[in-house]
């Protein structure tokens, strides 16, 4: 029987603030799971700490709510030990680009076949509205006593520099498009990042839904708002690397696009390169049967509890009498 949205929902009360962008992300994720007909027990969702981190509790799948900034290490450990699991890691902007920035960067080097979503709203919600690492310099969201003294990190550019092989941006209130981005991220062969722009109705009174939607800029010709977000696909932009020699120019193009912010904010796929070997492939070079026989599937003892592992070769090497 086909799996439906209801099969991925839990009966728990959802305590995100009304109007929170997280609702759009949650819905998009559940829609992807329906679309791909992924069995709940085939999927593991990892999160850090913060508003985003409650996500796994509202999805019916293996849900691992970890520590602040640490969803990636947990997710990597699980994925490498059991590569059959579809691993989705969720992080906040503070979680993934502040306290967990080291993991963000180093995960890029590994190109493990999994998906990482960053909920980017520019503020720390659960601790009452401090500036997150993506909030731009000089902005003063409503809980800040003074304007932001730091420049904001550009997560797309950082991901490019770190080696992510799929980099996309979605918008929490364009669920249909976000769903497509997440689906492409999951099907991508290698490490995929989706940065999701998400209004925080409680603490970010600058980058609001109206702001993203351009409600403050009415086109005099049509009388309609001119949204700040636009889709890269609509402009003929193509970030997919199909030949090795395209990798460099497409990286440069993506980096250029990543600089756009303010009046025009690009959404969609910035960069994708499936020509890079995945970590699983690299491991298979060292451990020939890794994919068939990963750590989680190895039998280590017989029925009597005797160890099956032979260390004879190593002991032979050390033998002196």
């Amino acid at each position: 029987m086909a799996l439906k949205m209801a099969d991925y929902r839990t009966p728990l009360f959802n305590d995100w603030c009304p109007g929170c962008g997280n609702f759009g992300i949650l819905t998009a994720v559940q829609m992807v799971l329906v679309d791909m007909q992924l069995e709940p027990s085939k999927v593991a969702i990892f999160s850090g700490i913060g508003c985003h981190a409650k996500m796994p509790h509202w999805v019916k799948a293996y849900g691992i709510h970890t520590m602040h900034g640490r969803p990636l290490p947990f997710a990597i450990g699980a994925k490498l030990a059991n590569p059959d699991i579809e691993v989705l890691a969720f992080g906040g902007d503070g979680d993934g680009l502040g306290i967990g920035a080291g993991h963000f960067v180093n995960t890029g080097r590994r190109n493990i076949d999994m998906t990482y979503l960053i909920h980017d709203n520019g503020v720390y919600g659960l601790t009452k509205g401090q500036a997150s690492p993506t909030l731009k310099l000089g902005l003063q969201t409503k809980a800040l006593p003074k304007p932001n003294i730091n420049e904001g990190i550009n997560p797309i550019a950082l991901a490019l520099a770190s080696g992510y092989t799929f980099i996309a941006r979605g918008y929490a209130f364009d669920v249909a498009h976000l769903k497509e981005m997440i689906k492409r991220a999951i099907t991508h062969r290698g490490l995929a990042l989706v940065v999701v722009q998400q209004p925080c109705p409680t603490y970010n009174n600058i980058n609001t839904k109206d702001w993203y939607g351009g409600e403050d800029r009415i086109d005099p010709a049509t009388g309609k708002p001119v949204p700040r977000v636009y889709k890269l696909e609509d402009t003929g932009y193509d970030g997919v690397v199909r030949k090795p020699e395209e990798a460099f120019p497409k990286t440069v193009a993506a980096l250029t696009k990543a600089q756009e912010w303010g009046d025009r904010i690009p959404m969609g796929l910035f960069y994708q390169n499936e020509l890079v070997s995945t970590y699983q492939e690299r491991l298979s070079q060292r451990i020939a049967d890794y994919l068939q026989n990963p750590p989680a599937k190895q039998v280590i003892s017989d029925a009597q509890g005797r160890s099956l592992t032979s260390i004879d070769r190593m002991l032979d090497e050390l033998k002196v009498t």
């Binding site: 691992i64 970890t66 290490p73």
Partner: peptide, 26 residues
Amino acid sequence: GSIIVIQTEDEIAAVNMASGAALTGA
């Protein structure tokens, strides 16, 4: 028989990766 040995970016990642792997039964 095989063991994955992974050099991490720091010890925070090291302990948490081990826990992530341990969750799968390995």
